Amino acid sequence: MDKKKSQLSTAFSAQWKSFLLLSLSLGLMPFVPEPHIWGKLEWLLGGAQGMQAMDWFDFFLHGTPWLLLLVALGLKLGAQVSKSEQEKN
Rank of each mutant, 00 (worst) to 15 (best):
E87K: 14
W43G: 11
Q7Y: 09
E42S: 14
D2H: 10
P65E: 05
W56R: 10
L67A: 13
A14V: 01
K3H: 07
G50T: 02
G27S: 03
A48R: 04
L73E: 09
E87Y: 05
E87W: 06
L28S: 06
S6L: 08
D58L: 08
A53D: 12
K83E: 14
K4Q: 13
A79N: 05
A72I: 04
V71Q: 00
L22E: 12
F12S: 00
Q49A: 15
K88F: 10
F19D: 01
L8W: 08
L22T: 03
D2Y: 06
D2A: 08
H62F: 01
K40C: 10
W38D: 10
L41E: 08
L69Q: 06
K5V: 07
A53H: 06
L73T: 11
L75I: 00
Q52H: 09
S6E: 14
L61D: 10
K83R: 13
S18C: 04
L77N: 10
L61V: 14
G47V: 03
L67G: 03
H36M: 04
L41Y: 12
F60Q: 03
K3M: 03
G63M: 02
Q86D: 07
M1F: 04
W56E: 09
Q80A: 13
E34T: 15
S18Q: 07
S25E: 04
S82Q: 08
F60T: 08
L44P: 04
L24A: 03
L20E: 07
P65R: 08
V81K: 02
F60S: 03
